[in-house]
Design a protein around this nucleic acid. Structure first.
Lengths: 338, 338
DNA sequence: ATGAAAGCGCTAACAG
DNA sequence: CTGTTAGCGCTTTCAT
């Protein structure tokens, strides 16, 4: 790469390596005059410290990893901004890794972190992830992990989540109050904790209204878009088709609208819909989409702040602290309110 | 971090450091038996090489940077997948950096790459970027840069782009053939090369149809969503308001639909719209959105493949090679076709 | 086929 | 206040 290193600066200035190093790090041991000389030459020569050398030496990289299922999802893309906002001022670099909803991908990525590449990890697990050992192993190597959104509940690591069960409860109750009696729940995984929580909220709402929880109304849309389309289509072609849908994930918005279009079902007349989503375009859909809007930015920011705190050894003594930031039900046209 | 290093393995196996190192790298100098012993213990002890030590020594990191304006945009999020697809098999890591459309952010990020943190860079410049020196400086330090989509035309670096001018030409011609006579063009920057190209295509189409290019019909929507909304609203409130719009960027879709909604303008009756966009939801909008769909995945993949080739020294002798992958005009409801 | 030793660039403990 | 020195963990000559 480049050859301006501390040694070169030292030689030029007729100083020792360590003096230059200390001067650059603004050590109290170095005289103001010397510091000035060093800084001047460093600037002039455009000296950039070698990241690997400092990391090797100091055993910290100032890199934090963000491990996500995907980035084509407004929740995650907004969360990234929150994360960046929190760590940039602290001088950390954000490295984004994508699992593409694959457990193997996730495990391979975390494995790699054992090489010391990153100082800490922000993790939102894949849809497939049921095991915890890959994360545990990393934590055993003293790499701090903070979960956000899609957490592994049983691990003793900090977690930042939203009130999934309550939100789904609210959404379902809202649909009930709009007159729905056959409400379906669309999940993307049977294992994902947040999906289970959301489903739980949905079930509880039904129970609290003396309505039966029908297995036929609970779908897992874990496949590709075309298969999800078929699944939802079948659902909405049923004789006793649902008159309300709670969709647990943004992706399913398109699916439901498309199916309704094809089946000539009218929203909100024939079917009402609430979707967990941070999509900006919720307002321009016809009808506009009633959403549960998650605090994506805040969740990312909070998780990142916790991680930085841990890295800076203002250690959280409670390893399994859990922060809940509530979501908001934003009522729009798709649930029948003009 | 962790303490299983080569030294520990060597000690345990009663071998020298170098023998272990060579064995792990499958050197021809080492006997099969020894290799086996080494590998076995390495596996058992879960040895993971220290990334910084190897990088420091070998002056390569196996990291490539992807520098983007933002990630909440389907073009970029899909492009990332193409990039990953290309480099994962080669053992490279993808590190995503976000400029948030800021030149300063971009410059700071590239500056940091001079530390050797990454072996090469895939770059799509910010809306604000007019200067080239920050990139030139990096290239001078022998860090290979490959542009994709948003290129700096004057730099002698490989570029992967789509046929921006032609696509805009096609879009405009399409609107003309649908009967539009007062067509507006919405850009996001006056400097961005691709925006200029798209605008050029638009102008050329008008000229070829003996229509005047009206400055009043060319807007730069470079600000936040609310201000863009105002701008577009003003445009569509004009006495001689446009009957067609070519929007150069996905973000503006929402804006245009919202304005039409508020002004009670009917698409495609009152206004027709074509948008550069890879949005999946194009089909569920009312009316469905006519798009110019860019080959996002292929562009990312191609750019990444070029970069890898350069890194592996199958050098491209032509530094300023330029690959053009065409976009596709997908006609839907918003331009008046059912 | 194996090992000794130098060194990538930087930091920090220890001396002066 | 400045300098000497010993590594961080790994790869790579150059011996043996």
């Amino acid at each position: 790469m480049k050859n301006v290193n501390i040694r070169a600066l030292a030689r030029e200035l007729k100083l020792s390596l360590s003096t230059v190093s200390k001067a650059l790090r603004d050590s109290y041991e170095i005289s103001a005059a010397t510091k000035e000389r060093v800084r001047a030459l460093a600037a002039e020569w455009n000296y950039i410290p070698n990241a690997y050398a400092s990391s090797l030496r100091g055993r910290k990289s100032k890199n934090i990893a963000v491990v996500l299922p995907e980035v084509a999802d407004s929740f995650f893309s907004i969360a990234i901004n929150g994360i960046e906002a929190a760590v940039k001022p602290k001088g950390y670099h954000v490295i984004i890794y994508l699992t593409h909803e694959s457990y193997d991908g996730e495990a391979a990525i975390l494995k790699d972190f054992q090489s010391g590449r990153v100082d800490g990890v922000l993790l939102s697990v894949s849809r497939e992830t049921t095991r915890t050992d890959h994360v545990q192993e990393l934590m055993d190597k003293e790499v701090p992990v903070v979960f956000f959104d899609r957490v592994l509940e049983t691990l003793a690591a900090p977690k930042v989540v939203t009130d999934d069960a309550e939100s789904a409860y609210k959404a379902t109750t809202h649909l009930l109050s709009q007159g729905c009696r056959e409400i379906a729940y669309l999940g993307i995984s049977e294992d994902l904790y947040i999906c289970r929580q959301r489903m739980e909220g949905y079930r509880q709402a039904l129970r609290d209204h003396q309505l039966p929880v029908q297995p036929r109304n609970i779908l897992t849309c874990a496949a590709d878009a075309t298969r999800n389309f078929q699944l939802v289509k079948k659902l909405l072609q049923r004789a006793n088709r649902p008159d309300g849908i709670v969709a647990s994930v943004e992706k399913l918005t398109t699916t439901v609208y498309q199916v309704c279009q094809q089946l000539q079902l009218h929203m909100p007349g024939d079917v009402k819909l609430v979707c967990f989503s941070n999509l900006e375009i919720a307002t321009i859909l016809q009808p506009s989409l009633t959403t549960i809007t998650q605090p994506a930015f805040e969740m990312g920011k909070t998780a990142a702040e916790m991680l930085v705190k841990i890295l800076e050894k203002k250690v959280l003594t409670e390893k399994d602290i859990r922060v809940v930031i509530p979501s908001e039900l934003v009522v729009r046209g798709s649930s029948g309110v003009k």
